[in-house]
Simulated scan of single mutants.
Amino acid sequence: MTATESFSLEVRSQSVGVATGGVVPNVSSAADAPVVMLIHGAGMNRTVWQLQTRWLAHHGFTPLAIDLPGHGLSDGEPLDSVADMALWLGEAITAVSERLDSEQVRLVGHSMGSLICTEAAAADHDRIARLVLLGTAAAMPVHPALLGAARRNELLAPELMTAWSHGNRAHVATNPTPGLWMLGGGLALLERADDGVIHADLSACATYEAGDAASRVKCPVTVIVGSEDKMTPPRAAVPLIADFDNIDVVHLAGAGHMMMNEDPAAVRTALAAALA
């Protein structure tokens, strides 16, 4: 595979959107750089990890930020439950393992993606070596106004999600990447979702019941929480954290739910430690 080629992936005979941080992996490169699969949250896609994937790709890892079905560049319809998404992720792990000849992967999940990764890790003790959860919680109830707006495919849904997903600094135009508007970028990303996608995802979050999933996870776990997270407040993660056997918690002061964009340097530092 040459540097001009892209990394393609299929699951259930459907194309999956994948971002690799600008470095196209192959069997040889993945043998020396652990495979890290990054899973986005509700209504989003692989691009939420763009400030992490390139760094990971040049610091000893093989990052694969993937689009869930019906999101970004992935074919198919959005799946209607976290359980179904976790089953799909298991098949994606199989496809990646076969493609890169990797026996284990590391999973990183944000928000809804954290629920998916937890369920996948609870069901697969052999192939998942590390689990990193950002903006997570034991349950993810959804405000009725947000769910209703998403059901009607109203712009209000992306607007509410964008406002609630960012901490105070983001609301006064602060951005660690000069020249970019954080809230505007977040809104534009959610507006790109096809009709029905945000509602399907939020409904999956609202009906999710964790049960004993966390207690069944055997690999080391790192939970990264933002002090200004309004979507999944730090207190909402406490019951989940208590159920993990091997757990490390990283607190990011001043960061909201979209901590990957709000404080990318701190997130990269936490990922480097957690994924090693």
Results as ranks from 00 to 15, higher is better:
Thr2Glu: 11
Ser8His: 08
Val11Phe: 03
Val11Glu: 11
Ser13Val: 01
Ser15Ile: 08
Val18Met: 07
Ser29Lys: 04
Ala31Thr: 11
Ala33Tyr: 01
Gly43Phe: 04
Asn45Gly: 05
Arg46Pro: 00
Arg46Val: 00
Trp49Val: 03
Gln50Ser: 13
Thr53Cys: 01
His59Cys: 01
Gly60Ser: 02
Pro63Met: 07
Ala65His: 08
Asp67Gln: 01
His71Tyr: 09
Leu79Pro: 06
Ser81His: 06
Met85Ile: 04
Ala86Leu: 05
Leu89Ser: 07
Ala92Asn: 03
Leu100Thr: 07
Glu103Pro: 00
Gln104Tyr: 01
Leu107Thr: 07
Ser114Gln: 11
Cys117His: 06
Ala123Gln: 14
Ile128Tyr: 06
Ala138Gly: 12
Pro141Gly: 12
Pro141Ser: 12
Pro141Asn: 12
Val142Tyr: 10
Pro144Lys: 09
Leu146Val: 13
Gly148Leu: 09
Arg152Ala: 14
Ala157Cys: 08
Pro158Val: 09
Glu159Cys: 00
Thr162Phe: 03
Ala163Asp: 15
Trp164Asn: 08
Ser165Glu: 11
Asn168Phe: 09
Asn168Trp: 05
Ala170Ser: 15
Val172Tyr: 11
Ala173Cys: 08
Gly179Lys: 11
Trp181Ser: 15
Leu187Ser: 08
Leu190Tyr: 05
Ala193Gly: 13
Asp194Pro: 04
Asp201Ala: 13
Ala204Arg: 11
Tyr208Val: 01
Tyr208Glu: 05
Gly211Gln: 12
Ala214Asp: 12
Arg216Gln: 13
Lys218Asp: 15
Thr222Tyr: 04
Val225Ile: 14
Ser227Lys: 09
Ser227His: 08
Asp229Lys: 03
Val238Asp: 13
Pro239Asn: 08
Pro239Lys: 03
Ile241His: 00
Asp243Glu: 15
Phe244Trp: 10
Asn246Gln: 15
Ala253His: 05
Gly254Cys: 06
His257Thr: 11
Met258Ser: 14
Met259Tyr: 04
Glu262Ala: 05
Arg268Gly: 09
Leu271Ala: 02
Ala272Pro: 01
Ala273Arg: 14
